[in-house]
Simulated assay, not measured.
Amino acid sequence: MNFGLGSVFCSFFVVSYFINKYVLSVLKFTYPTLFQGWQTFIGALLLLVSGKLGWVEISSIPRAAALAWLPGSALFVGNIYAGSRALSRLPIPFFFTLHNASEVISFLILKVTQRERMSWMKIFSVNMLLASAINLPIHDPQFDPGGYVWALIHIFCVGAYRVFQKKTSHLSDLEQQYINYVFSVLLLTFAAHPTGDLFGALDFPFLMSYQFHSGCCASALLGFFLLLATVKLRSALPLEHCGVWVFLAKVLTTGLSPLVFQIEVNPETLCCILCSLGGEALLVYSEKA
């Protein structure tokens, strides 16, 4: 049962990232307020319908709890917006190498605010993740400063969100995500005009193409199914075991991405990718130990 659930999670994870990368990089739809706004709108709609039909459990959310969660929703918007920008410019293995450095942000926040004691193994793994992220742009043969700046913002938002989620809310994962979706739709809708995405998308060459519409629909549906698979995985397995499946999903996505997308890698950047995966594996092991 756990193997089947983990396999479903990995499948949705891999295909979801590939579809998003296809729309963002191959079709070059680099309008994240619209792309992420569409995804979060469909996610909120499907969560609402699923809750009404009794397929998922979403309780009535108290206003005070929703307001207390808004800082987390703001970090979530920063995460998906900057993540889209970064993923559109960087290869998937590079994106994951940088994304993994969000553990460093979480580590530093907890160290400063909570003074949590960390094992030597966790400290070593976090340093591996940090070293990989620092050295990657130095040796990247196709260095894109914009991609790395957006990745840096994404890293901070993911790391801070992880800590906020751990320390703040008593809401369920689905309730948190429902608030995130609604807040994202509202904020991204209002931001579409000031950022120029609304008018820029009107000149998008693939706007009426089958590839664009099918890719956007698939990305929204897969994002929702990935959310359900993630929540189911967390409810069925201990947190440290969930980390193993997330790690395996990243390894599969990283390993398969060169077969789908063109990636230029040299020995130095390959070492960064492998070092990051090794650091994440050690981090997962340290959580189990």
Score class of each variant (00 low, 15 high):
38 W>N: 01
116 E>F: 06
174 L>D: 12
45 L>T: 12
232 K>Q: 10
240 E>Y: 13
111 K>F: 13
258 P>V: 11
23 V>I: 03
49 V>F: 05
52 K>E: 15
88 S>T: 08
46 L>W: 05
82 A>F: 14
142 Q>W: 02
249 A>S: 15
52 K>H: 14
193 H>P: 00
10 C>V: 15
164 F>K: 00
71 P>V: 08
18 F>E: 11
250 K>D: 14
66 A>I: 01
19 I>R: 00
264 E>H: 10
150 W>K: 01
257 S>Y: 07
269 T>W: 00
122 K>N: 08
150 W>Q: 07
101 A>N: 13
270 L>E: 14
132 S>I: 04
268 E>N: 08
65 A>F: 02
256 L>W: 11
273 I>W: 10
51 G>D: 10
279 G>P: 06
277 L>Q: 10
74 A>T: 11
75 L>P: 14
108 L>P: 08
133 A>H: 03
280 E>D: 15
31 Y>V: 11
185 V>H: 00
287 E>P: 07
89 R>W: 07
47 L>I: 09
48 L>H: 09
20 N>W: 02
200 G>E: 04
264 E>W: 01
164 F>T: 08
192 A>T: 04
152 L>T: 15
90 L>I: 12
112 V>N: 04
143 F>D: 11
10 C>S: 12
3 F>A: 12
160 A>K: 01
144 D>H: 11
55 W>P: 05
215 G>P: 12
265 V>C: 08
10 C>I: 15
73 S>H: 09
286 S>T: 04
33 T>H: 07
200 G>N: 13
108 L>D: 07
82 A>E: 02
45 L>Y: 02
219 S>E: 03
129 L>M: 13
6 G>L: 05
